[in-house]
Structure formats: structure tokens, C-alpha cells
Design a protein around this nucleic acid. Sequence first.
DNA 1: TGCGTTATGTTTAGGTCTAAACATCGCAAC
DNA 2: GTTGCGATGTTTAGACCTAAACATAACGCA
Lengths: 186, 186
Amino acid sequence: MPDPTTQEPAPEDPRPGTAAPAHSAADIAAAWQRERPGTPTDSIEVVTPIWWLGKLFADDRARVLREAGIDAATLDLLSVLRRSGPPYALSTRELARRTLVTAGAISQRVARAERDDLVHRSGSPAGGRTVLVTLTPAGHALIERSVDAVLGREATLVAGLTPTERTTLTTLLAKLTTDVRHRTQP
Amino acid sequence: MPDPTTQEPAPEDPRPGTAAPAHSAADIAAAWQRERPGTPTDSIEVVTPIWWLGKLFADDRARVLREAGIDAATLDLLSVLRRSGPPYALSTRELARRTLVTAGAISQRVARAERDDLVHRSGSPAGGRTVLVTLTPAGHALIERSVDAVLGREATLVAGLTPTERTTLTTLLAKLTTDVRHRTQP
DNA sequence: TGCGTTATGTTTAGGTCTAAACATCGCAAC
DNA sequence: GTTGCGATGTTTAGACCTAAACATAACGCA
């Protein structure tokens, strides 16, 4: 019965009872249906490619950044500060909000970046207990020469999509993001 | 000049020179253009939503799994074994190939799962130095009651897309994946 | 038989993240 | 004033991953 549409080469020794390898989202869904009929596999062909693409982009970005002498976490930190405009300073809280990691992670990121003289903490000029994290000249220089490398590279990765396809994809991703946020946050 | 299309509330104290917060991919691209005209921002509206969606799905899955008493790494391991069909046994190498993590990570995942009596290692029945990792009855029972919870939940998260939209999205993601693989692997 | 090569697993060092425990600071109610 | 609460940062314990160093085991071949 199993007539799986695989794209992988068949195993050298197809022992009876051994399923074929699955390496596309469709294969994974088919394998569940074969082994466990009725499994709710509707989401697999949407969720799985999104994860795989995220990993592909992340791995490629890591490769590019290694040559630039910076890691993804630091790039994220410096980017947010650079994009915020003069005076290139944000509180820990605000950095956490804009980077999707916890305040504790920001604290550690800032500690590493401060050790490398890319940012410095300044005791709160404005009220409260807030600490302002500011880009140093070295940090500004590093992000300046990293961002074009990273974004330029990623532009080539998505260049295979036509403008129409890209617009459609962006729209659908935005809709899905709204849906998921709506169903998970409240 | 800056007429940023933000969806966030304006900062309480808009000091001069301070950019508005950016919390959509379009806002991020606009912020780069405002602060650094000419930055190649073409990819941002594709790559960023993919990462954010990946994180939304991962966080939600972690929530569901916490109640089921299993973590995402273990779910991944047991799922691959369960989907492979009887006799629910695969080598370390093959597990690494199907889960997108390194062989070292598999070694550790298997060690944890073995400690919890979810799988057991069997000395190579077939040739070589290969170690077969096999699902135990407890592991089989755990994956059986976890997979419906996870996939059922995710089905509701993508239920807002019409069948047509879902097909279009799947197609575009597949095309992008092919492109990116082609440009990064060789 | 002896040796080098290749494939496979495991271990270890280092890095990063989250969750939770702590530590402050400002402020409001009284 | 002072007591308590809420917001903000930092620290720490635990989890998990990668890369690289180590082990073995099977093979090919002289």
C-alpha cells in the first residue's frame, strides 16, 4: 500500500517493514498517515517549511557573519541600536522588547558587547533604574560594515522570487502571523 | 522627512532624533532606509516574518508539550522513530540526517531519552559500528499521546488560511526553499 | 598480516538561551 | 514617613546545541 512519494534515494537494503526516508514536508505528512491514519497533519506543510527556511537563513547568516567577525546575537543587538537613530541608545527593557529575547539574555548580550567595547552602559540619565545602552564608535563601525554584507547576501537568496510572488508570500506570511499571534497571545 | 508607517503607539516622550519603535518587518526596512538610505532591505519582509513565525510556533509548541511532559527535542526524536514504522529503530547517523541536528546532539538526546526509559540502544545487529536506537513501550506510549496534541493544536493555528491560500503559501515556501538550498549548499 | 582510509558514535569545551531568584528604585496610599 | 507594589536589571542554574577531539570498527589493498 505505501506508495510514498519520496525524493530521497531508496535505502540500500529495504528491509520489510522499514519505511522510506522522509525529507520533505509532504513526505512527513504521508508517513504519519501511513503509520497512523487519522493523524491531524494539516499544518505540517506550512509549519515545517517555515522552520527549515528559518534554519537555512540562520545557518547562512552565521557563515557570512563569521567572516565579518561578529555573531548573530551581537548583530541583532547592534542593529536595533543603529536603527533607532541618534543618539543610538536604548534601555535594556526596550532592547528586549525589540529583539524577542528575555531581559536576562539582553543583560548577557550587553555584557559581552561591552567587554568587546562595542557598547557601553550609562547610568540612567532619565529617571528610574533604567540603564541606557549606547553604541560606541567601534560598535557603530562594526554594524556599519556588517549590515550590508548580511542584507546583501540575503537579497540574493530571495532573488529567485518574482516581485508578484514576493508580494503574495509577504501578504500570506503577514496574515498567518496575525492569526497565530491572535490565537496564542490572549 | 521621516513619515514611518508604524503600528506601534508613539513613544511617550518623542525626543528629537529618536526614531519610532519598529515592530513589523516593514517598519524595520523603513527604519533602515531612514537611518541608512540605500541599505539593501529587499529581503527583510520575507526573512523576518519567517523567523518570527518560527519562534511563535516553537513557543506555542513548547507550551503544549510542557503539559504533555515532554520537550521539543525529545518529541522530535520519538516522532522520527515512530514515523519510520516497525521495528521503530534507526541508527544515530540516520536520526541526525532526519532531524537536522548534528550526530553529537543526537547522542545526547538519546542519552537523555534512554535515562527516561523512552528508547534503548541496541548493539549493532546489522554490520558495522552502527548503534540502533529503538522505541521502548513507554516511548511509544508517550509519542502516541503527544503527537495528536501538538499537531491538533497547530492545525488550529493555520486554520485561518483558506485552502487556496494554504496551497499558494506552501508552493511559494517550497520554491523559496529550493532556491535557498541551491544557493547555499553548493 | 599490517596499515591507512572512511564511516560511525561519543565526549568535551564553549556558547547562548530561558526561567526563576534576587536586588533596587520610584511612587502611591495612607 | 513608611509600607507595599510594580517596573527594571542582573545573576544563576539548567538545558541544549555546535564544533572539534577522540575512539572504534569495517574495508581495501599491498
